[in-house]
C-alpha cells in the first residue's frame, strides 16, 4: 500500500479547502445560522415537534446535518471536477495510487470538511440553545456515515460530470432539495400519509433523523434504522465509486 501517497492526497485535499476557508467553511456556516435565525425566530415560540424540545433546538441538529452532507458532497465533487477541467487530474491518475487510496483520501477529506462545519455550527447552536447530548456515539457515527455517503456521492458526481454545469444541476436539483426536504425543519409525522410513507425510503431522512436522535434520544425512526439506512447508502455509493475508480470509468478513456 502507498501509505505516503494516500496521506499526501488527503493532506492536499484538506489544504485545498483550508486555503479558501471563507468559501468552504464560513459561507455554509453563515447560511445555516441565517436559517436558524429566521426559522427559529418565526416559528420558535409557536411550534414544538418533540415533547420538551423547543423548535429552535429541534432544527439545530437538522441544520448541522444538512450542512455536513451538503459540504461533504461539495468537497469531493468540486475538487474532482476542477481537476478534470484544469486537466491536472492526470498527475493523480499517473501516480502509483490504487483505487482504494484515491477513494479513501477524497472521502476522508470530504468527511473532515463536514465535521469541521458541523463542529462550528454546534458551537453557534450552543450559544442560542444549549442542546442535550443523548449519545455522543450516535452523533459521531451518523456524522461519519452521512458525511461519508455524501462525500462518495460527490466523488461519483465529479466522475460523471463533464462540466461545472452538470455538477451545479446535480447539486441544485438533487442534493439541495433532498437534504432540505428530509426533515430538517419538521417531523415527518406532520406530513400527509403518502409523503410520510415515501420518507421511509429516503436515506437523507435517516441521516437527519438519526443525527437528531443522538441529541434528544427521540426521533421519527429508530436509531438502528437510521444507522442501517445511512450505512447501507454509504456502502452502496462506495461500491459504485470504487468500481468507477478501479475500471477507470470516465477517468481513463
Amino acid at each position: 500500500m502507498n501509505v505516503f501517497g494516500f496521506r499526501t492526497l488527503l493532506v492536499k485535499e484538506i489544504r485545498r479547502f483550508w486555503k479558501v476557508l471563507v468559501q468552504t467553511v464560513l459561507s455554509p456556516v453563515v447560511t445555516a445560522v441565517l436559517y436558524l435565525a429566521v426559522f427559529g425566530h418565526v416559528l420558535g415560540e409557536r411550534m414544538q415537534v418533540f415533547p420538551g424540545v423547543s423548535y429552535t433546538a429541534f432544527i439545530i441538529p437538522g441544520l448541522i446535518m444538512m450542512s455536513v452532507i451538503q459540504n461533504a458532497f461539495a468537497n469531493t465533487s468540486s475538487s474532482l471536477i476542477q481537476s478534470k477541467m484544469m486537466g491536472n487530474l492526470v498527475f493523480l491518475l499517473m501516480a502509483p495510487l490504487s483505487a482504494w487510496e484515491l477513494f479513501g483520501a477524497y472521502v476522508l477529506a470530504g468527511i473532515l470538511r463536514g465535521v469541521l462545519i458541523g463542529t462550528v455550527l454546534y458551537g453557534f447552536g450552543w450559544l442560542v440553545v444549549p442542546l442535550p447530548l443523548h449519545s455522543w456515539a450516535a452523533v459521531l457515527a451518523m456524522t461519519v456515515l452521512a458525511g461519508g455517503a455524501l462525500a462518495v456521492l460527490g466523488l461519483i458526481a465529479g466522475i460523471l460530470a463533464e462540466k461545472f454545469d452538470h455538477l451545479a444541476a446535480f447539486q441544485n436539483f438533487f442534493i439541495m432539495p433532498a437534504s432540505f426536504l428530509s426533515g430538517v425543519f419538521y417531523s415527518i409525522h406532520t406530513l400527509p400519509e403518502f409523503w410520510r410513507g415515501l420518507s421511509h425510503y429516503n436515506p437523507f431522512f435517516y441521516m437527519i433523523d438519526g443525527f437528531r436522535w443522538g441529541f434528544f434520544g427521540v426521533g421519527d425512526a429508530t436509531i438502528a434504522a437510521s444507522l442501517l439506512w445511512t450505512g447501507g447508502f454509504f456502502a452502496l455509493c462506495s461500491a459504485i465509486a470504487l468500481w468507477m475508480l478501479q475500471t477507470g470509468y470516465r477517468l481513463r478513456p
Binding site: N2, V3, F4, G5, R7, T8, L9, K12, F91, L92, A95, P96, L97
Partner: peptide
C-alpha cells in the same frame, strides 16, 4: 512536493 508525495517520496 505534493507530486513527489504521490510517489511515496517525502
Amino acid at each position: 512536493r505534493i507530486q513527489a508525495g504521490y510517489y511515496g517520496c517525502g
